[in-house]
């Protein structure tokens, strides 16, 4: 059974979320602070350790950033950050520092399950590129063959377009921040060049989306980054 550690200081929200997760069939551990979560990690045996962490940003003993840093130093365990809408800057910072995805409070339970599902699918893919084939609608991307087809017709991409799409495919379903995309596709000197990203996303949409003005695959998360819709 999949084990989830829920780190949330609000008692009611913690109880409600834990209940919803148990109904969905997860084994739920809870912690009410970063220190509590740390302690649980220290005492649990290997086989009792969680498979995924849901981390609230505003904890009584810190913003969760230290906890994430400690966790990342030890393991690539998937972490989903839960934040209030006004905590944009911190949310992007934690995503850049290795959190896998985020949810903005208030969120619905189906949204939460969708994020958990994607994060678990990517579990362990921080080291090995397990996702090599992506399909959505009439579009198929094959990473190993460096090929994109739409309705079985090959789509020609420029090298940069390909690099950007491949980066998104490797984390399909998960948000990737502007900074991460710019860093991974163009290099660390280009982290502030958001306009590159806008132009290339627009080119990719023109080539791959049915209606580029109402995209269903290459999705924008305003103020955070981009998300490639889950492979279907």
């Amino acid at each position: 059974m999949v084990r989830i550690l829920l780190v949330e200081d609000d008692t009611d929200l913690r109880r409600t979320l834990a209940e919803a997760l148990r109904v969905e069939g997860f084994n739920v551990l809870t912690a009410c602070s970063a220190a509590d979560a740390e302690a649980q990690f220290a005492h649990l045996h290997r086989e009792g350790k969680p498979d995924l962490v849901l981390l609230d940003l505003s904890l009584p003993d810190g913003d969760g950033a230290d906890f994430l840093a400690n966790l990342r130093a030890r393991s690539g365990l998937p972490v989903i950050v839960i934040s209030a809408r006004h905590e944009e800057a911190l949310r992007v910072q934690l995503l850049d520092e290795g959190a896998d995805d985020y949810l903005t409070k208030p969120f619905s339970v189906p949204e939460l399950f969708a994020r958990i599902r994607v994060a678990l699918r990517h579990r362990g893919t921080h080291l090995a590129a397990a996702t090599t084939r992506y399909a959505f609608g009439d579009v198929v991307v094959e990473l190993h063959a460096r090929r994109v087809t739409r309705n079985a017709q090959e789509v020609r991409l420029t090298p940069t377009e390909w690099n950007l799409l491949a980066r998104l495919v490797r984390n399909a379903g998960q948000v990737i921040t502007h900074g991460q995309l710019l860093n991974d596709v163009w290099g660390s000197d280009f982290r502030e060049h958001t306009h590159y990203l806008r132009l290339y996303m627009s080119q990719l949409r023109a080539k791959l989306e049915m209606d580029p003005t109402s995209p269903v695959m290459l999705l924008n998360e305003p103020g955070v980054g981009y998300r490639l819709a889950e492979s279907a």
């Binding site: 958001t194 306009h195 806008r198 996303m201 627009s202 580029p212 003005t213 109402s214 995209p215 999705l219 924008n220 998360e221 305003p222």
Partner: peptide
């Protein structure tokens, strides 16, 4: 830098 069509789409 933002693209208007992306914001509207979101």
């Amino acid at each position: 830098w933002e693209a208007a069509d992306e914001l509207i789409a979101a």
